[in-house]
């Protein structure tokens, strides 16, 4: 019965893939057109002539676009490091150390993770302004860490729950301290959980918009999504530059998603199922 060719199935699959992917293909095609090709009417479906000029021009004329991508990397890496380190410790304590208020804290953390980011803006902007944290990596890393710590605590806690307790108990019998147990036993055992959590948090941070928009007001400090969105300024939207910069800014996410698809999907569904 399974041998019967399933053309219908393949047709629907192909259609879904096409719909999911064509905007990205269109973006990439646009980035290889020259200016006349981009503003041609009717639209050019295939770049004619095919040109790399937009890419060359970004590297030579618009270094700020590369700066945005660098900023995104710094903020994403910093935020990921903090959420993994602190979130890992917290998740371990909440799932293993039998804290009396653990259940309440987990629910509380889940509840605050649903706060709309825009409702944080008036206060965060004002406080960051007064503390000199506007336009600093430290500031935005801290803000992103706050946004995504709840997710990483939940996800890591659900990962720790899948590990056998016996090894840790044996280590305790041998008189090992919790910090050493965490570093020498739990971490090596749970690195897949940390990798999945770290990748998702990195993507979250890379994609985050409202806080990145408001807490980085200087052009040179903007992250990629914000910098590219605000790039046009007063002039007409320069699509040749925008499309090319967008391609560059989504490449890291495309690569991470492609390589770690399984981990990311597993992590997300586990996180949502809790």
């Amino acid at each position: 019965m399974q041998k019967r060719p399933r053309y219908g199935l393949y047709a629907i699959v192909s259609l879904s893939v096409l719909i999911s992917f064509f905007p990205i293909v269109w973006l990439i095609l646009t980035s290889f057109k020259n200016t006349a090709g981009i503003y041609a009417w009717p639209p050019q479906y295939w770049p004619d002539p095919f040109t790399l000029d937009n890419y060359i021009s970004i590297f030579t004329n618009s270094p700020e676009l590369l700066r945005y991508i660098l900023n995104s990397f710094i903020v994403g890496a910093g935020c990921t490091a903090i959420t993994l380190m602190l979130g890992g410790l917290a998740a371990y304590a909440l799932s293993r150390l039998r804290l009396r208020f653990a259940g309440m804290l987990m629910v509380g953390i889940l509840a605050v993770s649903m706060f709309p980011p825009v409702s944080l803006l008036p206060s965060l902007f004002q406080n960051f302004l007064n503390l000199g944290l506007l336009n600093t990596y430290t500031g935005l890393i801290l803000a992103h860490a706050g946004l995504f710590l709840p997710f990483s605590v939940w996800m890591l806690a659900s990962y720790f729950a899948t590990l056998p307790v016996e090894i840790e108990e044996a280590a305790r019998m041998d008189g090992m301290g919790f910090v050493r147990i965490f570093l020498t036993i739990v971490l090596p055992l749970s690195w897949p959980g940390f990798v999945a959590t770290g990748l998702i948090v990195f993507i979250f941070s890379w994609n985050e918009f409202p806080l990145s928009l408001v807490l980085m007001t200087q052009n040179a400090m903007r992250t990629a999504p914000v910098g590219i969105s605000l790039y046009p300024g007063e002039y007409a939207f320069p699509w040749e530059t925008i499309s090319t910069a967008t391609v560059l800014a989504i490449i890291p996410v495309l690569i991470i998603t492609a390589i770690f698809q399984k981990q990311i999907v597993g992590g997300l569904t586990a996180g949502a199922g809790k």
């Binding site: 999911s20 999504p225 800014a249 495309l254 999907v265």
Partner: peptide, 15 residues
């Protein structure tokens, strides 16, 4: 196929 379908979600909404 699953990867292609996942991409729109993984990319920044703004972009």
């Amino acid at each position: 196929a699953r990867l292609a379908v996942l991409f729109p979600w993984a990319l920044p909404t703004a972009l």
